[in-house]
């Protein structure tokens, strides 16, 4: 298949930090690749190299067959980028922002204007079109930023954490917009910290950690690898952890993760709420008191625990390290 985005062995250092450590990527025409990883994994660095904003120390990258380092201008004419933070001008109105981008994409005055109106309509920003962006909410800014990436109707699109910082409703709306866009045949590279987001939007997922791909496959393949839903239990007494773990383990399809400090057990299961009820019943008859329980979809943290044995190391989180415990 024709690979529209291709990266081979990308390496990028910032002083001692190895932001990218030999990353390979390939996105076929019209497909969506989800680059999934925690804060500091190297997602933004990869996007910046592919969109010509940054030069790699080693490796090569192509967009639609054009080398990003050798012919950056040609690449820029083909791509749309919406960065991790909305890069729209606060003092201009929504319309003026898109009109400016259209002119700078060299659509011509009339075309830039009509395209701006069209996108404002499509992104539900019509009412705010002539208000300075300063007055926009976070979600509106993100939508405007995304609209900015679409001004020239690019064949290839890069979205860096398009829903980070949005509330749950804003996130669902953004997913809707992205899905519509992709239905039109755009090739998309999307980065995210949310497994659910990658699952919903991407045809293929690359899990990245410390600048390297640690897993790759379709959402289903990845899920097979990491198991289905999780039961998560908080028990009352630390003394019962051993007994609780044995019980949970007998229902689990994978390994049970125990966090002793918070007396939390997490385990992959299949079978939905029925299993949860069984687990609770069994614990009850073993006299283990449960304070909280939940059945939830796996998160990025679960992916990392399964694949690497440690949680997703969020650059700035101070959560105690969770450990994988084999039964």
């Amino acid at each position: 298949m024709n690979q529209v985005i291709r990266a081979e062995g990308l390496v990028k250092h910032y002083k001692e930090v190895k932001a990218l450590d030999g990353l390979d990527l390939a996105v076929p025409e019209g497909k969506v690749l989800g680059l999934l990883g925690p804060n500091g994994a190297g997602k933004t660095t990869a996007v910046r190299i592919l969109t010509t904003l940054l030069e790699a120390d080693a490796g090569r990258a192509e967009v639609a067959g054009v080398d990003v380092a050798a012919n950056p201008d040609q690449v820029r004419a083909m791509i749309g980028l919406s960065g991790q933070y909305a890069a729209v001008d606060e003092y201009l109105t929504g319309f003026e922002n898109l009109d400016l981008f259209g002119r700078l994409y060299r659509l011509g005055r009339a075309k830039a204007r009509s395209r701006a109106r069209e996108l404002l309509e499509r992104f539900d920003l019509n009412d705010a079109a002539d208000r300075p962006v300063k007055t926009y909410s976070g979600g509106m800014r993100r939508r405007l930023d995304l609209a900015g990436a679409l001004v020239a109707d690019p064949k290839v699109l890069f979205l860096d954490e398009p829903t980070t910082g949005l509330d749950p409703r804003g996130r669902v709306e953004m997913w809707e917009v992205i899905r519509e866009m992709v239905a039109g045949g755009t090739t998309l590279l999307l980065t995210t910290q949310y497994l659910e987001e990658a699952d919903r939007l991407a045809d293929e997922i690359v899990v990245i950690d410390h600048g390297r791909a640690i897993a790759q496959g379709t959402a289903d393949q990845l899920k097979d690898q990491i198991g289905g839903e999780r039961v998560e239990l908080v028990i009352e007494s630390a003394a019962n952890l051993g007994r609780a773990m044995e019980t949970v383990n007998s229902f689990s399809t994978g390994e049970v993760v125990v966090d002793e400090q918070s007396r939390t057990l997490t385990a992959p299961v299949t079978g939905g709420s029925g299993v949860l009820v069984e687990v609770l019943r069994q614990l009850d008859s073993n006299s283990v008191k449960v304070l909280e329980f939940a059945l939830r979809r796996p998160t990025l943290d679960d992916v990392f625990l399964t694949l690497t044995g440690h949680g997703a190391e969020n650059g700035n989180s101070e959560q105690p390290q969770k450990k994988k415990v084999s039964a």
Binding site: T52, D73, R76, L81, A87, D89, F101, L104
Partner: peptide, 13 residues
């Protein structure tokens, strides 16, 4: 600081 320069740099201008 606000990333506007990045946006400009990603355009074919």
């Amino acid at each position: 600081q606000k990333g506007i320069i990045d946006r400009f740099r990603s355009l074919p201008m």
